[in-house]
Nucleic acid binder design. Sequence first.
DNA 1: GCGACAG
DNA 2: ATCTTGTCGC
Length: 240
Amino acid sequence: MTPTPSPVHPWAVSPALARQIQSELAHEVIREDRLDPVRRVAGADIGFEAGGRVTRAAVVVLDYPGLDVCERLLLRRPTRFPYIPGLLSFREVPALLEALDGLHTPPDLILCDGQGLAHPRRFGLACHLGVLSGIPTIGVAKSRLIGRHIEPGPARGDWAPLYDGDEIIGAALRTRARTRPLFVSIGHRISLTTAIGYVLACAPRYRLPETTRAAHRLASEEKAGEGGMGGAQRNPSRRG
DNA sequence: GCGACAG
DNA sequence: ATCTTGTCGC
């Protein structure tokens, strides 16, 4: 496959310009299935330390469909953008892109911690990471940013469309009985129904996908790589 | 003006 | 997200 990533844009921008950049890049999101056969799935997440002054980007690659860990990479960068609802990608994507570049085994698909199309300008974190990296992505959020939905059925796999007006922007997906649904949306190069299938396949036991769990674990791990910023680790132990 | 508001 | 103890439930 030949990804065609867009040239990077500035990150140190005002909220108003950030929104403008999102609206422009939103045109580049591909909402159809254009992904290679999936052999490796990655989870990407961010954690903080030093009272939030330091951002920790974690990416964990798992084989698919086995879901065993292949590679873990963690790096630290100074936090440069505040959390503003709707502008999360400007806070997290820069470090995540660097982490992706450092991977020894690039993934065929990335499950992101946050929304994709289910965003005011249809350009959530998953879309941003997907468009700039060229890698297919899915937005998997634990809570809702925008949109309305009815309660999905009670069984694992049941889901209800997430609407913004009459437009379907994502799905409220039950990955486990008796637990709150996740919010799944297109990130890049994948359709919503295909995305739902991968999220279910990656979450065989718990509410959150194994990819997300592994990335979150690494991002918030206590003793995270000694030798200063840029520290990376690979070939971890795979315990469940 | 009053809420809502991914992580 | 992060600060933090116990607690209810499988």
